[in-house]
Every structure is written in C-alpha cells, then in structure tokens.
Design a protein around this nucleic acid. Sequence first.
DNA 1: TGAACAACTCCACAGTTGGTGAATAACCCT
DNA 2: AGGGTTATTCACCAACTGTGGAGTTGTTCA
Lengths: 178, 178
Amino acid sequence: MTRELILDAARTLFAENGYDGATIRAIAQRAGVDPAMIRHFFGDKASLFAVAVASRSEVAVRLRAALSGEREGVGRRVADAYLHLWEDAEVGVALRALLRSGIEPGRPTEPLLAAIGASNGTPIPIGQVLAGTHLLGVAFARFVAEVPAIVVLEHDDLVDLVGPAIQRYLAPEGADGA
Amino acid sequence: MTRELILDAARTLFAENGYDGATIRAIAQRAGVDPAMIRHFFGDKASLFAVAVASRSEVAVRLRAALSGEREGVGRRVADAYLHLWEDAEVGVALRALLRSGIEPGRPTEPLLAAIGASNGTPIPIGQVLAGTHLLGVAFARFVAEVPAIVVLEHDDLVDLVGPAIQRYLAPEGADGA
DNA sequence: TGAACAACTCCACAGTTGGTGAATAACCCT
DNA sequence: AGGGTTATTCACCAACTGTGGAGTTGTTCA
C-alpha cells in the first residue's frame, strides 16, 4: 500500500527531476509517508530507483513486436509503438526518468538503450540503431525538452511525419523481413 | 588567466556531470583555484554556467550556413556540420553540458533548442525540426550515451548513413532553396 | 494474556552544497 | 614609495543530503 505510494511518487519525481534532483525526502513527502519508510522498504536510493524505474522490460517486448510484422508499414508501426510507450503512464514516466537522469556509471540503463535500439550483446543492424536515435530524439523533443513545434502535433500526425524515415532505416530496398 | 582556467574546468565538468552534478568546489579544484574565485569572477553558479556554456551562438550560425546552400546534398552538409560542432573541443563540450543538464526552468537553453531546429520566435518548417530531432538523437547516442554501434563509426560513414534521412526532411520533393 | 513481527515515527548524525564577508597578498600606475 | 584596484585566501553559514538507530504503534498467532 504505502509501498505503492512510494513507488508512484518516486517514478513521478525521478521523471521530473532526474535521479539526483529527486530526493528521498521529496519522494516521501509526495507519497505522504515518513522518509524512513523508503529505507525500510527499499534499502537505499539506488535500489528504489531500480525498482521504480528500471525494471520495464515491456519496452523491448513491445518494440520487438512492432518490428516483427511484415516489412510494409514497419516504420509507421514502430514509430507508433514507440510514441505510445512514452505516452503510457507508467512506462513513459520511467523512460522520462531514465533520460532525465542521464547516463551515469553504475545506473541501470538497459531499458533506455533498448529503447534506442541497442539492447544486450547481440549485434543489431545499424539501421535499427539509427532508427532508435531518431525516435529517441523525437521523444526527447516532445516529452522532455517540450519543443513547441513537436508538442503541438497530434500523435498520428507525428507518426505520419516520422514513419517514412524510420521505414527507410528498418526496411531499405531489398531485404526479407524476419 | 585563472578566469580562463575556471571556464575550462567548468565547461568540462558541466559536460561530464551536468549542471547539478558539477559543484562549484569541484570546478575550483580542477582549475586549481579557491572556490571563492568563482564567486569573485562570475557571481553565482548560474552565471558561470551561462558564461561558460550557454553563449555559443556559432551553433546556429554554422547550421544556418550549412542549410543555406543548394538543395542537393544539403542533408549530408547539415549532418556533417552538426557532428563537427559536437566534435569541436569547446562547442562540443558546451552542447554536451546542455544536454546533460537537461531542460530545467530558468536555465539558458537557446543553443540546444537552436541545435535541434527550434530557435527563436520565427516559425520553422517542421522538416527542419524533425531533422534536428534526428541529429540530436544521433549526437546523444554518440557523445553522451556512447552507444557502441554508433561510437564505432567513422565521422564520414555516419554522415553517409544519416545524410539521406536529413535530406528527405530538409528538401522533400519540389521546393526551391532559400 | 503475551510474544513476535512488520509497519511506522521521530530524531540525529556526518557530509556536502551554494553562497557570503572579511582579511590579506599581489599588482599596476603615478 | 604610495595609493588603489584586483586577485586570492580563509573561516563560516544555513540548508539540504542520504543514512542510521531507537523507539512506538498495530496486527497476528500461540
């Protein structure tokens, strides 16, 4: 119960302020509990971050699903799925938190890397990685930096605009789908 | 003299650790001066950040130059110029610092926004903004997150890979250059 | 009734932060 | 040499950080 309150507050504040910016005390206050409860349930701040934010494997799953269909329209499909992830209440806030926290040594960053197309050891086509960089840039502009020209767009319109570029990266001329 | 030492140290640490992560004391120590010197020369931390990092108008200038030539090859040209900016010793470290610092209210972020195609009030073609998001994503992967698949590439190869996508955004079918 | 256990509160510690003010040293120009 | 500006050092503050310990409630089980 209060455990969930803490997790919710942690996700929100990590997303808004990044790892360093979100203090244990602020998280506790937002959750309406005593700061010591966080220590009681999660040990230390890094563990709280890991539990609250970094255990979102559905990112890779959902992206792989969008990627695995037929070649035609895969660009639109992946862009749509990616933006949906960022718009999702829990996943989006976790991704925001990861991005906001930046890449610092010792922090679990797998989901973010997966989100930009560079998951674990297996070699990934460079096109997928480049598509990931583009989508990450779009997400950064839309959800973190909040660039007006990007924020203003409807989800579907943005997908229409970005889709072709992603398509070109994921399915260039002449290749058979997975 | 020591002023320059402070600025150099500030740029480096802001780039490595972001705004909050770079402490006045750490900057002073790296510069080999007393922390009070920073106050003496720059007043407070925000002013130091502004002077050290946020006054890089050449970003917009260089990008506009790359953008203003003939339509053919503008994608390659802009991608090349953008990556060169990030590789430049001073400008690159400033851009890194801005990105690492994230977007927080009250901080000067014009150069970063300009870098992703959203400069001041004037309306900008959506294609330019999208090209900016892609380039920012690439820069993030290459210079901040240091995604292996991207870091490994040579500058020119990366330009070759990204150029066409930028080209499509900046010069779609049927339009006369500026 | 009472023991055991988890949930919870309160207070304090040691460390670091950004920022300040006063005192001292170095310098330059006349 | 002397005066004045600049550079530099040092001690200090209030605030905040993550963390830890000690003690209190409340519920459950024997």
